[in-house]
Design a protein around this nucleic acid. Structure first.
Length: 937
RNA sequence: GGGCCUAUAGCUCAGUUAGUUAGAGCGCACCCCUGAUAAGGGUGAGGUCCUCCGUGCAAAUCGGAGUAGGCCCA
């Protein structure tokens, strides 16, 4: 007789080999057909809401690993919350406007801004963005992300654009919006503003000049009581002499030492110069001074407020301090023209200097600079140098070649030129303080986010909202054709808001002002009724900053504020900050209760991923080779609060972990092929070890829930993996084999094991579903549940009634004994005494009365727990050659080959009577089982 | 250059209020099994807790400096 046919061996159709890349597609197809996302919403519609507001990724290009990480983290939360008593509508979003798209498209079309009509271009840009929305949507769906994919929010949707204008309107109403000057890159030949991405750095030859700014009489006292034979001068260095007419200040570093130095410039010329002390030797060498003497040394901050004469104009330049001043080159004093440089502009703002820029759009000096009026700034460079020399304020000049920004189209050098821009005032209505206070109420995860946000808000300048671009939401402002006064009226903007809601923002460039405005409206200043439209568009950050207003407020099934924003840590500066700013301006309140940030994906060495380093790993590759669940498992395994590493080694670790979990699930299900829920054994009747396993399961459930609630998914990952590998595979399931396989199929003992295995399987599948979504859905049909999907089931709750801490303590001790026995067995295996552990007979010796009693009390479990054929124990000290485990346990173990005969069915050895003539190779236990089967057959 | 963050075994992570010999799982090596089989079990080897200095009776843990890396600015 083939006795293995009488065994209850595992049986399942659930494949060992996952073949995820294919299998996942089938599962996703089923999800689609079920309309699972809708079913989940329907199921949870009356529960309390949890709003995770999606930060819109930029709709250009395929998704990269950072996108995958971000959306998977969100998805884990959405799924966990959806299964745990929350209604979690998740509306994905895309950022569709902005320079990167515009830039890419112009490149693709091979043309520049002036070579295409604006509306025509905008239609192409919209098409381009929508194409990538579709691409990314498919890629996100391929990751197994659940969301309202059919109804995402797009920043180019009419309703969204209208919502953005509404936000602008509210800001105008509350007085946040003003017009001011700001320097931007400007191409003189194209007569246009350029974005940073549109300038290229190329070598350029410029005059390098060292120029004196003489102190005024009144400032001499700042230098102390010294009498000077020569009027001291502050020495600056610049490579853009043409910006000198716009000079407003001289900037010192507050902490640097500045030397007031007497120099013999030449045999007949002497000077007193103020420069950074550390630069003195190289500087004197450069300008050819052989003899010099330091008269006095001052800290930069002591020079604050010093007044100097302009080197060739009748005006005063004032001393200011700033940390950006460096000792790399020059004199340690920086000439500041706030209208002609970014750094200068920032210094200007901090010191309330005029943003002065007397240069027109063709790059010619305006009438304000009489000397050079109407002349091109480049042409004037040399004349300015001549003029300074003439007045004796030039100490040194040479031509230098350096890297300088050029226009990407016409390749000419560009300048910084101030133009009128729209701003949002950060200090209006106490906004900065409100933002600060609201930040303090937000739950930042990790908590350092609060510090980072506050530091940023504290220092940020007003927000420049204007962009001289094509692809964005227009700034809804009209100008009087008569007096050029901007029309900043709530009523007018509301017309635009309504128009965009109907026709979208392209209509701004199609409709005439009179088609938009009501006929009664007139200029508040001069009363004229003819207007022109603003050409500039809004900074793309304004679009996304409006999302909580344009999405959460506009949809009844959502709510405001959001419970959670979850993005990369770069968004402290980006989306979080601008959203906070807008929300506090409009609502005096943060738009989010919690903000969770994750780090960036870096390679195995912790270096950033870049094409040039060749260490980029694409999510598409991982999906193709291993499947989305592997990627999801990797996401869950990493502590995302820091940098997140990814390498081939790390992926293969996820693959290994996946296999272990999958096999454990498969094995559990394979042993449940003849089990159904009606056969469940009541708790009281369970075998003790089964109660122990149930206890462990409940603890696991509690810990895993804790992990999910605190968004610590790597804890979830570790807990479940350890449970599968340690509690289940290496112990419980291994020990159970004898009972499952050899006991009669319907025996209470076997059903007891199956009852618990079923519980374990069902719960593990649910616990893992937010992470291994496809795999858990794949096993779901093997669990005969009423729900059509694991995601329509309820998340487990920790059942404390199935817990028994006393039992756990006792089994901990039993496991310790198993530990020493397996070590003894391993030694015996090495000595070729036994191979398979069932070939072993174990003798345990202990002189310790308590331990002996413990062994005695549990005498029924030992063979099972050790998976050996025989166990004897003795209340006496074992011989010296018996195995002992240091002094960890007062036990000594002797391993010998088991006594008696091996039963061919259960492989246990026994000395029982082998009497049955028809089954002479069966032990008594198996004999009964087999006889039973035969009589039942 | 500035703000924020990180550094524990080959990998992913623990390590509480400073308190025995710094832990887990995986991987690796070796062994067993062949009734979870492109599986399963066992044993074992792996650590300058990034470096240096300091404070403590005592430091992975607290303080300072540095190195390497990340994000954001400049």
């Amino acid at each position: 007789m083939e006795y293995n046919k009488t065994l209850n061996l595992p049986k399942t159709k659930f494949p060992m080999k996952a073949n995820l890349p294919q299998k996942e597609l089938q599962i996703q197809k089923v999800w689609n057909e079920l309309k699972l996302y809708d079913l989940i919403q329907e199921k949870n519609k009356n529960k309390r809401k949890f709003i995770l507001h999606d930060g819109p990724p930029y709709a250009n290009g395929n998704i990269h690993i950072g996108h995958a990480l971000n959306k998977i983290l969100k998805d884990i939360i959405v799924k966990y919350k959806s299964m745990s008593d929350f209604s979690v509508p998740f509306v994905p979003g895309w950022d569709c406007h902005g320079l990167p798209i515009e830039f890419q498209l112009f490149k693709k079309l091979g043309i520049s801004k002036n070579e295409i009509e604006r509306v025509k271009f905008r239609r192409k840009a919209a098409e381009y963005a929508l194409k990538f929305v579709k691409v990314q949507r498919e890629e996100f769906k391929r990751l197994g992300i659940f969301a309202d994919w059919e109804n995402p929010y797009l920043t180019i949707a009419h309703s969204y654009e209208s919502g953005t204008i509404r936000v602008f309107k509210e800001l105008v109403k509350k007085g946040y919006i003003y017009r001011g000057l700001k320097p931007v890159y400007w191409c003189l030949s194209c007569e246009t503003a350029l974005a940073e991405a549109e300038v290229e750095y190329m070598d350029h030859s410029s005059p390098s000049v060292f120029v004196k700014f003489a102190l005024t009489e009144e400032s001499l006292s700042l230098l102390g009581k010294e009498k000077f034979t020569f009027l001291p001068s502050v020495l600056i260095w610049t490579t853009t002499p043409w910006t000198l007419p716009a000079n407003q200040a001289l900037c010192f570093h507050p902490e640097f030492d500045y030397a007031v130095t007497h120099c013999e410039v030449s045999s007949d010329k002497e000077d007193v110069l103020i420069v950074a002390k550390d630069l003195l030797p190289s500087l004197m060498d450069k300008i050819g001074v052989k003899k010099y003497k330091i008269i006095k040394v001052l800290k930069g901050k002591e020079l604050t407020g010093i007044k100097c004469r302009h080197p060739f104009l009748e005006k005063i330049s004032v001393g200011v301090v700033d940390n950006f001043v460096s000792l790399e080159e020059g004199t340690g004093v920086v000439h500041i023209a706030p209208g002609h440089g970014q750094e200068d502009y920032a210094v200007g703002l901090r010191n309330n200097l005029p943003i002065y820029s007397p240069v027109d759009e063709k790059g010619k000096f305006t009438k304000e600079v009489e000397l050079f009026s109407g002349r091109n700034v480049w042409e004037c460079n040399s004349e300015i140098v001549e003029k300074i020399k003439e007045l004796g304020n030039l100490l040194y000049t040479e031509e230098i070649v350096h890297s300088y920004p050029h226009c990407w189209r016409c390749k000419n050098p560009v300048i910084f030129r101030s133009t009128e821009q729209w701003f949002m005032q950060v200090d209006k209505n106490n906004l900065r303080h409100i933002v600060f206070a609201e930040s303090g109420k937000v739950n930042w995860i990790p908590s350092a986010g609060e510090k980072r946000m506050k530091a940023m808000v504290e220092n940020r300048p007003d927000w420049c909202l204007s962009r001289q671009r094509y692809w964005g939401i227009p700034i809804p402002v009209f100008y009087c054709q008569g007096c050029n006064e901007p029309l900043l009226s709530e009523e007018a903007i509301e017309k635009v808001e309504q128009l965009f809601g109907k026709e979208g923002s392209d209509s701004w460039f199609i409709r005439k002002p009179e088609e938009i405005l009501s006929p009664e409206i007139k200029c508040q200043k001069c009363g004229k009724k003819i207007f022109r439209k603003e050409e500039d568009i809004l900074d793309v950050w304004f679009d996304s900053a409006a999302s909580s207003e344009a999405v959460l407020k506009e949809n009844d099934f959502l709510s405001w504020p959001a419970d959670l924003y979850l993005e990369g840590s770069d968004q402290h500066r980006g989306w979080f900050q601008v959203s906070l700013l807008i929300s506090c301006a409009l609502q005096n309140k943060a738009p989010f209760r919690s903000v969770l940030t994750h780090g960036f994906v870096v390679d195995g060495e912790g270096k950033k991923m870049s094409k040039s380093l060749g260490n980029v790993i694409a999510p598409q590759e991982i999906i193709k080779d291993y499947g989305a669940d592997i990627l999801r498992l990797w996401v869950s395994s990493e502590n995302y609060s820091e940098d997140i590493r990814l390498s081939d080694e790390i992926v293969s670790q996820s693959v290994d972990t996946y296999r272990r979990i999958r096999n454990t699930i498969r094995y559990l299900s394979a042993n449940l092929s003849d089990f159904n829920v009606e056969q469940k054994v009541p708790y009281e009747e369970l075998e003790e070890i089964d109660k122990w396993a149930l206890h462990k399961l409940q603890k696991l459930i509690g810990d895993v829930i804790c992990g999910y609630q605190e968004y610590q998914f790597h804890r979830v990952y570790k807990l479940i993996h350890n449970f599968c590998a340690v509690e289940l595979s290496s112990f419980y399931l291994d020990v159970l084999k004898d009972r499952l396989y050899t006991f009669s199929a319907d025996s209470g003992e076997r059903k007891s094991a199956q009852t618990v295995m079923f519980d374990i399987l069902l719960n593990i599948v649910k616990l893992l579903a937010p992470v291994l979504s496809h795999t858990c859905e794949e096993v779901w049909p093997y669990l005969f549940q009423k729900e059509k999907s694991v995601f329509l089931s309820d998340f487990p709750l920790e059942n404390k009634e199935s817990e028994n801490n006393g039992l756990e303590e006792k089994w901990e001790k039993i496991l310790k004994v198993k530990g020493i026995v397996t070590r003894a067995l391993e030694k015996a295996r090495g000595a070729k005494i036994v191979g398979n552990s069932l070939e072993a007979k174990i003798e345990i010796y202990t002189a310790d009365a308590d331990w002996y009693q413990f062994l005695q009390e549990n005498k029924n479990v030992w063979t099972t727990v050790f998976i050996v054929s025989q166990v004897n124990f003795f209340n006496r000290e074992g011989s010296s050659d018996a195995y002992s485990d240091g002094n960890l346990l007062p036990l000594k173990i002797v391993v010998s080959f088991a006594l008696g005969k091996k039963c061919v069915r259960c492989w246990n050895y026994s000395e029982c009577v082998w009497e049955d003539s028809s089954h002479p190779q069966l032990c008594q236990r198996c004999l009964k089982v087999v006889q039973n089967m035969v009589s039942n057959a």
